[in-house]
Computed example of a mutant assay.
Amino acid sequence: MRVLFNTWGWPTHFYPMAPLAWALRAAGHEVLAAVPPAQTHVVRATGTPAQAVGPDLDTVAMFRDIVEGTGSPGPSGVPRASAIWLTLAESMAADLVALARAWRPDLVVFDPTSWAGPIAAAAVGVPAVRHPWGADIVGAMRARPGVAEAESAAVASLCARLGVREEAELLGRLTVDPCPAGMQQPGLTHERAPVRYVPYNGDRVRHVLPPSARPRICVTWGTTVGKVAPGRMPAGRIARTLAGAGLDVVVAVDAAQRHLLGDLPGDLPGAVEVVESATLHTLLPGCRAVVGHGGAGTIFTGLVHGLPQMVLPLLPDHRFNAQRLAASGAGVVLGLEEATDERVREEALRLLEEPAYAKAAGALGADIAAAPAPAALVPRLARLTARPA
């Protein structure tokens, strides 16, 4: 079986797919990831073959427009975020369709916001499988009145320009779902295949923390906020606040964004350790809670270790993940404007002192551990590609 993976130029959208790509290759199947040029080195660093499709677009500017409320609206009835997905699809689809017609995959696995994937699947008549990176915000958006029709019409127009006659399945034939059931959006009706979330955040440094006599909290803001809105990354201030309350703090930060933390004095009641470009899952066993921005990788990796979380979201998917986490009872959500030092300190202590948060986080962690491993999904995907006799 040949499996073509597709996502756009954001590393954190491919990382959740990587374990499935590994499982397919380990089972003897052929895998190729088609991504924009700047993403190829990220994919190849996971051990997955990569092919460049389309040009590199300034996606940072696109998301900055969302944060700032600027940018041009999309086609009638298409949400602003979906207009970005359409722009990304238009940039990649011609190359991806040509690649699919030449390589002839049996299956296309795509990031839900990378509509070029299902377009290419339609072009060669094979199933498309969605692989969300977090709680299914895209599925929830399409369930709103009129959105599915508007998105499908916009994609149908692109398909017509490319000579693709079959309808592109934007929700896929199947959704591979790494989100624990207790945190997923209720009421979604498309077919889903639960899969265990396997923590992975790139080719980074393994760092194991020594034991601490005081409660330790991990503060991490991923990499997205530092690129899109560096002025709205409060990780340094929050670390100082928590250490000032007598807690030990480890700050996980990308080396290129270390300067965004500002000065972290050493004379605080608690201790602050800054760890650059570390594998997050190796830091968290020594922690009692996580404070972050709501990225799926941070939230899910925290839940693997049963850690309650405080989330200060910025982008729409951050807010969606945060709302679903709070609904599960495993965390609290603060808007950036309400996250005063006093409120941050108060909510952090509540996470540590009220056992209900850790209990809910532990239950979600147990859900993740009980989900089928990526290797267990491989036979189901193979059956999906079986052609009628």
Results as ranks from 00 to 15, higher is better:
Ala339Val: 04
Leu261Tyr: 05
Glu347Thr: 15
Glu169Val: 09
Gly28His: 08
Arg2Met: 10
Tyr357Trp: 14
Val31Leu: 07
Pro313Gly: 11
Asp267Ile: 11
Leu314Pro: 08
Asp56Cys: 11
Val250Phe: 09
Val147His: 15
Ala168Arg: 13
Ala366Trp: 06
Val272Tyr: 05
Pro199Leu: 03
Val147Asn: 11
Gly329Pro: 12
Gly226Cys: 02
Leu158Phe: 12
Ala120Ile: 12
Ser277Leu: 04
Cys218Gly: 03
Leu364Gln: 00
Ala358His: 07
Ala135Trp: 10
Arg130Glu: 10
Gly262Leu: 03
Arg232Asp: 13
Ala326Trp: 09
Ala389Ser: 13
Ser212Asn: 01
Ala360Met: 05
Gln185Ser: 14
Thr189Phe: 01
Ala83Gln: 08
Ala356His: 13
Val43Asn: 06
Ala386Leu: 14
Val250Asn: 00
Ala128Thr: 04
Asp95Cys: 02
Leu99Met: 06
Leu381His: 01
Ala386Pro: 02
Leu351Pro: 05
Trp115Glu: 05
Val42Thr: 15
Arg80Tyr: 13
Ala45Leu: 03
Phe5Val: 00
Gly125Gln: 09
Thr175Gly: 00
Asp263Thr: 14
Ala382Lys: 03
Gly163Leu: 06
Arg345Tyr: 02
Val228Gly: 09
Gly74Arg: 12
Asp177Cys: 01
Asn6Asp: 11
Val164Phe: 12
Pro199Met: 04
Ile66Thr: 13
Leu188Ala: 00
Leu384Thr: 09
Leu32Gly: 08
Val250Pro: 05
Ala256Gly: 14
Gly54Phe: 07
Val138Lys: 01
Ala181Val: 12
Ala148Met: 14
Gly306Met: 10
Ser277Thr: 15
Ala213Thr: 14
Asp341Phe: 01
Ala148Cys: 00
Ile238Ala: 03
Cys218Gln: 05
Leu86Ser: 05
Gly77Leu: 07
Val250Cys: 06
Ala271Phe: 00
Gly297Trp: 08
Cys159Val: 07
Leu284Trp: 04
Gly226Phe: 04
Glu276Val: 10
Val198Trp: 01
Pro112Trp: 08
Ala386Thr: 14
Cys287Ala: 12
Asp341Glu: 15
Ala356Pro: 01
Leu351Tyr: 10
His281Ala: 11
Leu315Cys: 03
Phe14Gly: 00
Leu336Arg: 15
Val31Arg: 11
Val290Tyr: 10
Pro355Leu: 03
Ala327Ile: 07
Val43Pro: 07
Arg350Ser: 00
Gly139Leu: 02
His131Ser: 04
Arg343His: 13
Gly117Pro: 09
Asp65Phe: 06
Gly163Gln: 11
Gly270Tyr: 11
Ile299Asp: 01
Leu209Lys: 10
Asp95Glu: 07
Asp95Val: 05
Met233Ile: 02
Ala154Cys: 12
His207Val: 15
Val198Met: 10
Arg237Val: 04
Val164Leu: 07
Arg240Gly: 03
Met183Ile: 13
Phe5Asp: 04
Glu30Leu: 10
Pro265Ala: 12
Val225Ser: 10
Gly286Arg: 15
Arg240Val: 00
Ala296Cys: 08
Glu191Gly: 07
Pro234Asp: 08
Arg345Phe: 01
Val35Asp: 05
Arg64Asn: 13
Asp136Ala: 07
Ala94Leu: 14
Ala243His: 11
Met92Glu: 15
Ala150His: 12
Ser114His: 14
Ile238His: 02
Leu334Asp: 01
Pro355Asp: 06
Gly71Arg: 09
Asp254Leu: 13
Gln185Cys: 14
Pro105Thr: 02
Val35Lys: 09
Ala143Asp: 15
Ala154Glu: 06
Leu107Val: 03
Ala121Trp: 06
